[in-house]
Amino acid sequence: MALSQRIIIVDDERAVRSGLSNLLHSDGYPTRLYESGEALLSDDDALSEAGMLIIDVGLKGMSGFELFVLLKQQTALPPVIFISADPEETTLWYAIALGAVTFLRKPIDVDTLLTLIRCELSRGEAR
């Protein structure tokens, strides 16, 4: 299955969703935005053309980790980057143990994020 370049952003902070979306659009990536895991799960077509997901760990309602586990059970999941303001080192290791590409702390270094996205999406296209 060839992945599209669409990036799904799940974050309960409107400013973060908007800022990430603007950044990614300026780099040529279409996005879909969701304020919660529940909102993403209620959209049957959400993952149909997803090339990558960026998920906040500390969502209202179900956590980003809970969302990830549910999605992984339902479908072949594109690469996932977790983001969070949580300073705990264990959060990073848990995200990696679940199978995420990486974990980035807020505020996010945009150069690092874009480099990771380009690398992962080009790797997906090569498959």
Rank of each mutant, 00 (worst) to 15 (best):
R14I: 00
G61I: 07
P30Q: 09
I8N: 05
I8H: 07
E13V: 06
Y29K: 03
P87G: 06
D43A: 04
R6Y: 11
L47P: 01
L59Y: 01
L92I: 09
T102V: 02
G124R: 05
E120H: 05
R32A: 14
A97Q: 13
I9R: 10
E35F: 04
Q74K: 15
S84V: 00
L20N: 10
G19I: 04
D86N: 14
A95T: 10
T115R: 10
I9G: 10
F65Q: 04
E89I: 13
A95I: 07
S84Q: 12
M62L: 14
P78N: 12
S48R: 14
E120Q: 14
G37E: 01
L40T: 03
I83E: 02
L77S: 12
D111A: 12
Y29L: 03
L47Q: 01
D44V: 09
G58T: 02
E120T: 08
E88P: 01
M52C: 00
W93F: 15
E125S: 15
E49K: 12
A39L: 11
A2D: 10
Q73I: 04
W93L: 15
V110R: 10
G19H: 11
I8Y: 07
I55W: 00
L98D: 09
S48Q: 13
Q5M: 10
F65D: 03
V16S: 07
L53S: 03
I54N: 01
A46Q: 08
G58A: 05
L53H: 04
M62W: 00
L77A: 10
S21P: 02
S48H: 13
S36D: 04
H25M: 09
L20W: 08
L20A: 09
L40E: 04
A15L: 15
S42F: 08
T75K: 14
S122R: 15
T90A: 15
A2V: 13
D12T: 06
L71P: 09
L98Y: 11
I81F: 06
A85S: 15
A85G: 15
I8L: 08
S122L: 09
E125Y: 13
G99W: 08
T102R: 05
A2W: 05
F82Q: 08
Q74Y: 12
P79D: 09
S42C: 11
S36R: 02
V80R: 06
A126V: 09
T112Y: 02
R127C: 11
E89H: 11
N22Q: 13
I55N: 06
P79W: 10
S18M: 08
R105H: 11
D86H: 06
I54W: 00
S42K: 12
L71D: 11
S26C: 04
L23Q: 05
E13T: 06
I55A: 08
P79A: 13
I9V: 15
G51L: 06
D56N: 12
R6V: 07
T115K: 08
P87M: 08
C119S: 12
L24Q: 07
D45F: 03
E88A: 14
T90R: 13
E35R: 11
